[in-house]
Amino acid sequence: MTTQIPPQTRQTQIKLDYQAAEYTSFMDRLKQWLFNGYASLFYLFLYAPIFVLVLYSFNKSRFPTYWTGFTLEWYKILFNDHLIGSALKNTLIVSISSTIIATIIGTMVSVGIERYRFRAKSAVDGLLFMPIIIPDIAMAIMLVVFYNLIHMDLGLYTIIISHIAFNISFVAIIVRARMASLSSTMEEAASDLYANEWNAFWRVTFPLLIPGILGGALFAFTLSLDDYVITNFTSGPGSTTLPIRIIGMTRRNITPEINALSTMMLLTAMLLVPLSLWLQRREDMS
């Protein structure tokens, strides 16, 4: 014990300890600086372009090289652009309808796979992952060939069907993860309390799956919202969506109108983030 150490030795001991402490605190501070610097660079890299984009959407000048003053002109042009308006309408039709349908089918598929045993289970399982693994471009071509084969004219419907096709997989995977985390004891407890399969599902399993289902739907919606490759291949006349329209605009010349549009989309995404966080919290609660 320290009480046994003579006073002199103890002093040197304390001094040494003090030096060691000073050294480690220097190392700690250095590490802290390096870490802070790295983190700042990381966020700068991530957010500087976005900041510039937002800033120049309010720039009077047509060219992004100079800042010539504040204006809302580009937003006015944006809101009066009929082509953008109809593209936005198409995008919302496609995203919302494909999200709803894909969420319903995807949920049913995952419940089926998780709860029932059948022979082709692993095959169905594998097939479900395919749309996630297959490159977009390959999937796009396959879909076009398929629509040709069944003589279906390309248009909004074909886009919607295509989006459903890839969204099902994403929804199913998210819902299945949720499903797997629920133990089967919940359903057993329900059936022990006189609930038949129908009631056990709707009263117990489904409410517990809701966070997963909503999370899957949100994910599907975002994927659908900015899909370009598959949409471009499967679209027809009059079915231009927002991403296609934007890329078309940039081909000709980039105007600050695109900056304004991107800023609006950014705003929308920022509204979706708290929504998904809220869903996450609900998930933690149960």
């Binding site: 919940m186 057993e188 407890a189 329900a190 022990d192 309390l193 038949n196 056990a200 117990v204």
Partner: peptide
């Protein structure tokens, strides 16, 4: 006879209360 038609009830090992 399925569990929901049997006149027995169970107290499960981890209680299995419905969290929602």
């Amino acid at each position: 006879i399925p569990p929901f038609k049997r006149p027995v009830n169970t107290v499960f090992q981890n209680y299995a209360l419905f969290p929602h």
